Every structure is written in C-alpha cells, then in structure tokens.
Amino acid sequence: ATNIVGKVKWYNSTKNFGFIEQDNGGKDVFVHKSAVDAAGLHSLEEGQDVIFDLEEKQGKAYAVNLRIK
C-alpha cells in the first residue's frame, strides 16, 4: 500500500523504532530508524502527521518512504 496517512503514536530514538497510527483505522505500523534516516529526519515526534508506504516482510508490516505531511 502507498501514500498512507497517519500520526506518530510514539518513537524511541534510543531504541531506534516506534509506531505510526494509521488514520484509516488499520493496525499500528512499525517504523525503524532506517526509514527515519532515509527521510532525512533525525527523529519523529509523538502526534506528528506523516505519509508512508507499507511493506511486509516475514508477515510483519512496516513503514517505508516516510515523509512529513
């Protein structure tokens, strides 16, 4: 899925991951530091509006192509 809109539920910059809540009511999506770095960001803030693509690997969904809304 592409261009999914959501809000950062939480992001832990020490542990380098967090979760994004989808605006469409879907399951929360894992986001890793690598996606944050690829977006040219240092971190994510709770409540921040983002747009992302959804990829699945080994049955787990995660956010890629992250951008600030």
Rank of each mutant, 00 (worst) to 15 (best):
G6F: 01
N16H: 15
A63L: 03
L44E: 01
A63I: 03
Y62F: 11
Q58Y: 12
G59T: 08
T14L: 13
D37T: 14
T2D: 14
N24Q: 12
Y11C: 02
D23M: 15
E56F: 11
N3R: 05
E46F: 11
E45F: 15
K15F: 08
F19A: 02
T2G: 07
K33N: 05
N3F: 05
V8E: 00
T2K: 14
G25N: 10
N12P: 02
D23E: 14
A38Y: 12
F19S: 02
G18I: 01
N16V: 02
Y11V: 03
T14H: 13
A35H: 07
K69R: 07
H32V: 03
V64K: 13
V50F: 05
V64C: 04
Q58D: 12
V31E: 00
K27V: 12
E56M: 12
V64F: 11
G59Y: 11
A38K: 11
Y11T: 02
D53P: 00
D37W: 15
V36R: 02
G26C: 05
G6M: 01
F52A: 03
Q58V: 09
G18K: 00
V36E: 01
N16S: 11
V50E: 00
H42W: 09
I51C: 04
A1E: 11
T14R: 10
D23F: 15
G40D: 08
K27R: 14
Y62V: 06
V31H: 00
I51H: 08
G6D: 00
G59M: 10
D49E: 09
V50Y: 04
V64A: 09
G18L: 02
K69A: 03
G40Y: 06
F17E: 02
N12I: 11
A61N: 11
V36Y: 03
H42P: 12
L54Y: 07
F30P: 03
Y11H: 01
D23N: 15
H32C: 03
Q22I: 14
A39G: 08
N12Q: 10
D53E: 05
L54V: 11
G59A: 11
V29D: 01
E56C: 04
A63Y: 00
E56D: 10
E21T: 15
